[in-house]
């Protein structure tokens, strides 16, 4: 545990979460969400939970991004709120 690495990973994590919430282009929001879960995976592996980090990297950054993009192709690309 190196606290500088933890701190900056946490800062980037919060920034990607805010970007995913605030952006209007939904494809960009999906990409920001994939980046968010990749940084969660880095944070987990930094904390020593390699197994959980592996699940987060495959499911969060891999499968769920693809599923969100497929849903996005069936609807419109921009959000209205």
């Amino acid at each position: 545990m190196i606290w500088q690495v933890d701190f900056w990973l946490l800062v980037i994590l919060i920034i990607t979460a805010l970007v995913a919430l605030s952006v209007h282009d939904l494809l960009a929001a999906v990409v920001a969400l994939a980046a968010y879960s990749f940084f969660v995976a880095l944070l987990f592996s930094q904390a020593g939970a390699i197994d959980v980090a592996f699940v987060e990297a495959t499911l969060g950054a891999g499968i769920s991004g693809v599923l969100f993009i497929v849903v996005l192709l069936l609807t419109r690309r921009r959000s209205e709120d």
């Binding site: 980090a53 592996f54 495959t58």
Partner: peptide, 13 residues
Amino acid sequence: PGGGFQGGVLLAV
């Protein structure tokens, strides 16, 4: 690290 769940997700990918 790894196991059935992660391997299954990779196969599905």
